[in-house]
């Protein structure tokens, strides 16, 4: 089934500090579906989100979001496009000097001129959606890690965006918090028709909720498709990643010299 692409990257090349992070990445993110972007640590998954959001510019290649050519946008247009995007950072990134209520109200106050009682209704609704309406007066320092992420999620949907990007939402969460997040991501996607992009290296959780997945490694896409297609993928690298095998195309040993030289033993390997 051909779905229209909400985001499409064509041959994107991006380097930083001399390292080629993306070496010709081409992928499409379908509209209204949950797409997971996975890969080993350090492949630049967060960088990809920043490229989509226009915080970084690619060295070459095209990035299109909702029909807009992102790298070519001027500052004002970029900021207007960002109003349609929500982003959930790994740490939550709540503003530490504002209460939970004020944090969620922030995008509303900045981008709209709604009266105070309307803002109150919207904030409370969003907090209710993540189950934290009762926590509205707490300060971020008083929240647990999982609660922080839920508040950040409420904040990122405050303006009813078309796209939400999740940066490692499952990292370091206990099973209950993980279950809550999975439920929220799925519910938000189905109830609001959002396009959701999930960046994670948690394979089981990501594959359990996504409709489509891409695996990035060495700056390229090494596998993409629906979860079932990926599980049957012929590439060894994909299989090593999906099944968590410790040794394979990504070797166990960091490149080192012959052990005989280090251990003073002549002949043969250990």
């Amino acid at each position: 089934m051909e779905l229209s692409a909400y985001i499409s990257l064509r041959d994107v090349v991006f380097s930083r500090a001399g390292r080629r992070i993306f070496d010709g990445v081409t992928l499409e993110i379908p509209k209204g579906r949950i797409t997971a972007i996975m890969g080993p640590s350090g492949t630049g998954k967060t960088t990809l989100l920043r490229l989509i959001g226009g915080q970084l510019r690619p060295d070459s290649g095209g990035i299109t979001v909702a029909g807009h050519d992102v790298p070519a946008l001027k500052r004002k247009e970029l900021y207007r496009l960002r109003e349609k995007m929500g982003m959930l950072f790994q740490s939550g990134a709540l503003f530490t000097d504002l209460s939970v209520y004020e944090n969620v109200a922030f995008p509303l106050r900045v981008h709209t001129r709604l009266p105070e009682d309307m803002i109150r209704d919207i904030v409370l609704m969003k907090l209710e959606a993540v189950g934290l309406r009762g926590a509205r007066r707490l300060m971020p320092s008083e929240l647990s890690g999982g609660m922080t992420r839920r508040v950040a999620l409420a904040r990122s949907i405050a303006l009813d965006p078309e796209l939400i990007m999740y940066d490692e939402p499952f990292a370091g969460q206990d099973p209950i918090a993980m279950g809550v997040l999975v439920k929220l991501i799925r519910d938000l996607n189905s109830s609001m028709g959002l396009t959701s992009v999930l960046v994670s290296h948690d394979v089981p959780e990501s594959l359990s909720i996504c409709h489509y997945a891409c695996i990035l490694a060495d700056g390229k896409v090494i596998g993409e498709g629906t979860p079932e297609e990926l599980r049957r993928h012929p590439s060894e690298r994909v299989q090593q990643f999906l099944n968590g095998k410790p040794d394979g195309p990504v070797p166990f040993h960091y490149p080192a010299s012959d052990p005989a030289a280090d251990f003073g033993v002549s002949g043969g390997r250990l």
Binding site: Y79, M87, F89, P107
Partner: peptide, 18 residues
Amino acid sequence: GLMKATEQLSSMEMMGVD
């Protein structure tokens, strides 16, 4: 610096606030 390290500045940018 702390706001930068906890990605508060980044998230502000992503929300369209300079």
